[in-house]
């Protein structure tokens, strides 16, 4: 039944890597959009909204991503909601990412000095304009290193999607390993692939950090 590990398998893994990247990008964009809303709600003037977001963030940061994924994929069937792997992955990634990015950005929004709000106030900017033109640009700039750094976490988190059958790197690696039984080679290549995806991101994050401190 076993066969040799072949070059073809490397190609399969590279194809799977495309999925890993695509899923990561999706998580970043969708989670980023929701995360921005989470961050804004978290610093909202409406107390109920703030508390709701504290709950949301704590819930998602306080449980493993794998559990969240399984609850959404399998757990929801108990309440009559059947989601396919795609929808489950999309929802789980978005929730997870939004909680973390929301919390990172909340900190950066709150880090903008009160005096910036006051300067914007005396110029007559509306609440919305203060956010749009004064607070968010500064907060997002400061958040860049941490944001890009978190991208690395997302990439690694996508490996867990293999449990619901997604054909990303880990899933393909498992199937190849099942027929070749050469885990060292197969998972070694996986590790290299993840490393090659994550290294530029973490280097970029460090670079941004240095630049930011250089100019601030």
């Amino acid at each position: 039944m076993f066969r040799e590990f072949a070059w073809l398998d490397v190609i399969s893994l590279l194809r799977a890597a495309q999925w890993t990247i695509l899923l990561s990008l999706f998580a970043f964009v969708a989670g980023g959009l929701v995360g921005l809303a989470v961050a804004l709600a978290r610093v909202s003037r409406i107390a109920a909204l703030r508390y709701a977001m504290i709950g949301y963030i704590n819930l998602l940061q306080g449980t493993p991503f794998l559990i969240q994924l399984l609850v959404i994929y399998f757990g929801l069937t108990f309440v009559g909601i059947r989601l396919d792997a795609w929808s489950s992955a999309a929802i789980a990634l978005t929730l997870y990412t939004s909680a973390f990015l929301g919390e990172i950005w909340r900190g950066c929004i709150e880090g903008v000095p009160t005096t910036q709000w006051e300067a914007a106030e005396v110029l007559g900017l509306s609440h919305f304009q203060k956010y749009l033109y004064v607070i968010l640009p500064q907060a997002l700039l400061v958040s860049l290193p941490a944001t890009v750094g978190f991208l690395v976490q997302i990439v690694k988190a996508t490996s867990l999607l293999s449990v619901i059958g997604f054909a990303e790197i880990m899933r393909i690696a498992q199937t190849i390993n099942n027929v070749t039984f050469q885990p060292f080679i197969v998972y070694g290549i996986c590790a290299v692939l993840y490393f090659l995806i994550c290294l530029p991101l973490s280097r970029f994050s460090v670079y941004l950090e240095r630049r930011l401190h250089g100019v601030a």
Binding site: Q116, A120, V134
Partner: peptide, 27 residues
């Protein structure tokens, strides 16, 4: 009413011109 502060409170992400034109344009 205009107000100027001890610590200037310029917007660091905007150029000098951007600082001065922001309210003219948006407000």
């Amino acid at each position: 009413i205009g107000m100027v502060f001890q610590s200037f409170n310029l917007f660091p992400h905007l150029s000098v011109e951007g600082n001065v034109t922001l309210a003219l344009r948006k407000v």
